[in-house]
């Protein structure tokens, strides 16, 4: 039962932090809450028996991607006027429609989960990095290649956009 408790705890932390992320007016605050949410998710992954995924989450997501976001925020220097404008955008009337839509989606998804046959008894064993690595470079070889292509494409496009930026300046 204590294990269930840990999953629920990590989940609650992640949900609360995420809720803070989407409601913050300052980007830096939002990003820090996002790091908290990601760390909580990493713990959740670990307790679900996926330590490799947990480590990757910490290193790549919280470590690299979030730092990238922080860098961008620093570069474009969103200051006080942006914050007030940001607050004027976050009004209840703006919140209402999307919240209803998201709530509908949530309801249907939970309803679907409740009716699925996946929720059987807890019997979790750890799936370690070795197993993941074996299947990555075994049956999922093509997926790895695709991922590398995708990264290359992202690299090229980011480089292109950034280069045009430099020339313009």
């Amino acid at each position: 039962m204590s294990v269930d408790f840990s999953v629920g705890l990590y989940g609650l932390i992640a949900i609360a932090a995420t809720a803070m992320v989407i409601t913050r007016a300052r980007p830096v605050h939002a990003l820090l809450y996002m790091v908290v949410a990601l760390l909580a998710l990493a713990c959740l992954f670990d307790s679900l028996g996926a330590p490799f995924a947990a480590m990757l989450d910490v290193i790549v997501y919280a470590g690299a991607i979030m730092v990238l976001f922080v860098f961008v925020v620093m570069m474009i220097n969103l200051g006080q006027p942006d914050e007030t404008r940001e607050r004027s955008w976050i009004t209840p009337s703006n919140w209402f429609g999307p919240s209803v839509l998201a709530a509908l989606l949530l309801t249907t998804l939970i309803f679907a989960l409740g009716h699925g046959d996946a929720a059987t008894g807890p019997n979790i064993t750890e799936v370690g990095p070795t197993a993941v690595g074996m299947s990555l470079f075994g049956p999922y070889m093509l997926t790895v290649e695709l991922a590398s292509f995708l990264l290359l494409a992202g690299l090229v496009s980011a480089f292109h956009i950034g280069r045009a930026l430099g020339e313009k300046r």
């Binding site: 294990v3 269930d4 840990s6 999953v7 629920g8 990590y10 989940g11 992640a14 949900i15 995420t18 809720a19 989407i22 959740l44 670990d46 307790s47 679900l48 028996g49 919140w95 999307p98 919240s99 839509l101 998201a102 709530a103 989606l105 949530l106 998804l109 939970i110 989960l113 996946a118 929720a119 807890p122 019997n123 979790i124 064993t125 750890e126």
Partner: peptide
């Protein structure tokens, strides 16, 4: 070596997804 309930993870995932969509 834990014995957590994966379905709880799924519920958390769904909630997070809805929050992200919002």
């Amino acid at each position: 070596m834990s014995a957590a309930d994966p379905s709880a993870g799924l519920y958390v995932a769904v909630i997070l997804f809805a929050l992200g969509l919002t």
